[in-house]
């Protein structure tokens, strides 16, 4: 198990928006600055200024989402850039009724990251195919060993606390989907449980996670 950052005391970066509100009483009301949705819609009309503003709000999150899936920091930056270009390119199609701007952009990053991992994996698999065949014959089963990753290293204290409310099985399904980039069907196959069971775990787990996060202070 990797617990590289677990020893650090959680001080937690205070979200910038909150900081601003507390430290500057005379600041203009929040409503005066455009929402992320307004910014993304403006991107869709070709405003590069809106993209700059959106970038300032979301780029670090996009980089993190990419890193939680691809792990390698350089590759994560690369994926994040691709995702942000993709967000700009497809922003004319953004419809606020179908999700928040943040969810929309972060989902693009998540998918891009999964695509990259799969592409890299595919190439490694092919390059190593012959050698692996020989090895597998020598030591059957060795290649099936799942490398255990401690997803907690990627989680804020707030997320860890909220995830603790879930059952182990719910948490496992959500972590495999988010950090492992797996679909419900792939998770069901990997865990050897029926697809319906996996769907239920994800649905109930997400509901509980959503409610738990409301209870945990930022």
């Amino acid at each position: 198990m990797v617990t590289a950052v677990a020893v650090e005391q959680w001080g937690g970066p205070v979200p910038r928006r909150h900081l601003r509100a507390v430290s500057n009483e005379t600041a203009p009301p929040e409503a005066a600055s455009p929402t992320l949705e307004e910014l993304l819609l403006a991107c869709g009309r070709g405003s590069s200024e809106a993209f700059d503003a959106l970038y300032a709000e979301l780029a670090a999150q996009v980089i993190r989402v990419a890193r939680r899936v691809v792990h390698d920091p350089d590759m994560a930056e690369d994926v994040a850039q691709e995702a942000l270009v993709e967000a700009w390119r497809t922003s004319p199609k953004y419809d606020p009724a179908r999700g928040s701007a943040r969810a929309w952009v972060l989902t693009i990053a998540h998918r891009r990251a999964i695509d990259r991992v799969r592409r890299e994996q595919r190439q490694r698999d092919q390059v190593e195919a012959e050698a692996a065949t020989a090895e597998r014959e020598a030591a059957p089963g060795a290649q099936d060993t799942v490398v255990e990753v401690d997803f907690r290293r990627w989680q804020s204290a707030r997320v860890r606390e909220a995830l603790d409310v879930l059952s182990d099985l719910q948490r496992e399904a959500i972590e495999l989907a988010y950090y492992g980039g797996r679909t419900q069907a792939e998770i069901a196959e990997q865990l050897g449980v029926p697809l319906g069971t996996t769907k239920t775990r994800i649905r109930d787990g997400m509901t509980r996670l959503r409610e738990a996060l409301k209870e945990v202070p930022r």
């Binding site: 989402v65 999700g99 989680q155 997320v159 959503r210 996060l213 409301k214």
Partner: peptide, 17 residues
Amino acid sequence: LAGYDDVLGALAEPSDA
């Protein structure tokens, strides 16, 4: 779906400072 915005934001929070 809009209700899961905070979940996605939380998952993208930094693990530490």
